[in-house]
Amino acid sequence: MRATSGWDIRLDGLTVGYGDHVVLRDVNALLPAGEISMIIGGSGCGKSTLLRHVLGLQRPMAGTLSVGGRDLFALHRRDFRKVRRRMGVLFQDGALLGSLTLGDNVALPLREHTGLPKATIRQIVLHKLALVGLADYADYYPNQLSGGMRKRAGLARAIVMDPPILLCDEPTSGLDPVNAARMDHLLLDMRANFPGMTIVVVSHDLRSLDAIADYVLMLHDGTAAFAGPVDALRATQDPYVRSFLDRRADEDQRADVTLAPEVQQALDAWLDR
């Protein structure tokens, strides 16, 4: 068992959605401190919506969301901000501010929240950029970098305040296999270098699941299909979990790709012109 910081995340009967539209209903899970938890599921199953609630960007429709033992949405505004300041977030495309260099992006939380001298901030920024292999790119703007580099810079910004919680939205999506593996290794490095850090990764990348996950919350059909250690996930015989892990499409859901004969005939006639 790794060292824990006590910053675990607990979802109790959580129901989330937009307006009157329920996306996920009655989700129960514990994302433990000191481990890498992955929230997985098919496209559009509500992974990113759930993450927005964990970040406090949206209020749940029902249930409680506890961070470090405190109900996030029952906290006074000042305490809510204190808890959220303890979260580092890597957004899907890094969400770096386009008008700032990488160095300024990473320095932003330090400049806004601390009174540290410029030289100290610069040292911290370069150290964090070095952790993600971008020490030489501090003066580059985000649009001068590849997608993988932007994600790594986003990770550097997420950890610049040494947060006990790190939340990552699709960190490997859109990356080639080498860069995806590199991102996985970075997350493993985070777990090793920051003992007790609660790392939550939203993804549908099965290679990442195999490489980094300790705990898994799988979402399907508007609720949690599985929540527990990754070994238990592999052992489960739940049909949907098995089809997801084995990458099998549901035969009933395969679309009929045949066009109506008269439509096909019209298309062929036009293509033959």
């Binding site: 406090g56 960007l57 957004f91 495309d93 969400a95 386009g98 008008s99 939380p109 806004e112």
Partner: peptide, 24 residues
Amino acid sequence: EIGVMRITDQIDALDVMDINPMAY
């Protein structure tokens, strides 16, 4: 500029860094 920041999650990023986007 602010619209692009909104649709690319940059404003949400400010929010979760506890930097008030209105102030910033």
